[in-house]
Write a protein that binds this DNA or RNA. Sequence first.
DNA 1: CGTTATCTTGACGTACATCAAATGTCGTGG
DNA 2: CCACGACATTTGATGTACGTCAAGATAACG
Lengths: 248, 248
Amino acid sequence: MTAASLVLATVHVPGLAEHCGTCDARSGSICAAIDDADLHRLAKAAHPAQAGAGQTFIYEGDPAANFYNISGGHARLFKLLPDGRRQITGFARAGHFLGLAVNEAYSFSAEAIDMVSYCRIPRASMHALLDNFPAMERRLLESAGNELVSAQEQMLLLGRKTARERLASFIVAQSRLDRPCRAHTLRLPLPMTRGDIADYLGLTIETVSRTFTRLKSERLIDLPGPHEVVIRDFEALDTIAGGFAAAV
Amino acid sequence: MTAASLVLATVHVPGLAEHCGTCDARSGSICAAIDDADLHRLAKAAHPAQAGAGQTFIYEGDPAANFYNISGGHARLFKLLPDGRRQITGFARAGHFLGLAVNEAYSFSAEAIDMVSYCRIPRASMHALLDNFPAMERRLLESAGNELVSAQEQMLLLGRKTARERLASFIVAQSRLDRPCRAHTLRLPLPMTRGDIADYLGLTIETVSRTFTRLKSERLIDLPGPHEVVIRDFEALDTIAGGFAAAV
DNA sequence: CGTTATCTTGACGTACATCAAATGTCGTGG
DNA sequence: CCACGACATTTGATGTACGTCAAGATAACG
């Protein structure tokens, strides 16, 4: 990076910043750390792309050449054991940055659940961006902190909670995710399959299904279809999620 | 921070940097990002302290006023459910930085296993350090990445591995931790109790003990005492840890 | 509208938890 | 140095939450 290019970098080039300027996910992602004037710098580094449902776009073990920023759709992030057992470590949606949990090689795979839009940022470009925009690095650090907090929460779930508590935790977490500010959602979309939920919660499909059915029969939720949950008693779910042995 | 103090900051004040200059853990921690000339800046921000065995020095839920850097000893990091069920999310030793997984409040508790030495860094001081030493922030980001990778690895363990695979994974990970560069250790110290290991692996004390005994009877390890393991067949352990159904 | 994958429900099996007691370890004071 | 007590660990007997296997019901998709 020469001094000249640094000066030029502050000149807005119309068109280049297009896909970043119109990006719905920008405000809720680390890209918000870069303001409009410098947006073309970001737009030059971030290459937009898409992945259709079922398509894997990050392979665990591959050299980590790129970082990814999800701008739309839903993806599952997972690790596999050699015999095929799968652990979903998280779901990514708009605003989610992928690449923190990366050293030389990707430590997980990423697969599109529905149509996923994302931006690919080459490693070198990312480092250049971070060098030039400290606000972005700070935001990344905050983001990493949040990810660590939820990873630890998930360890507690996987190591110590019952199936019932896991599912309640999952529903509560999803509802918080859906509308972080407003009151907890009533109708909650679940883009992932029962198999995904099972592999996320360390259970089997059958146990997930049975536990959903039980929560429904207890009037805590409704299940209009496989891909949506209606929360009928948030307080009760939240109590169960916290690990209080709820009355049946 | 005034311009004057920034200039003064580069003047070495003998004595102030003492506890950082002589810190054994420095080279393996984020403190290595600050070179000798600026060490007094770090030393001014980092307040050394100690915690005796069994003493809790971070309480989950407390306002996150400080960051911590472990300089000696071993600590368990854990989360509790209201009925007392415990999940240990990790063990901290010299060089480990605590505070990444923190927003407003601590998301975990930290308790000394043996005598723990640590440096307490007030939140504001930490931010000032990061503003002035970009190398430190970069190192913190790398550290966060590493933590996330191991958190995901632990999710795979907790969600999908058998007791046998969990214990093998634990032993292999501990041996890698002990001597990252050299060949895998033969004699491995385990400062934590069986209860700690159980709560880390999502098992009970009894299952941990039985599984240790079984690995011993299969000549994969020796158990000279409760607080050390001798690795007799690293390859086999590593295979089991990876999730290959090992022959009995 | 048929085909296929996903989801639900049931019957049964098992890995690990729980309960209980013996054995071992370690710090402390005689 | 050894004896005692408290606590950690091991080992055994039994229970159970969840997994596995299997079959139907429902939803998704061309």
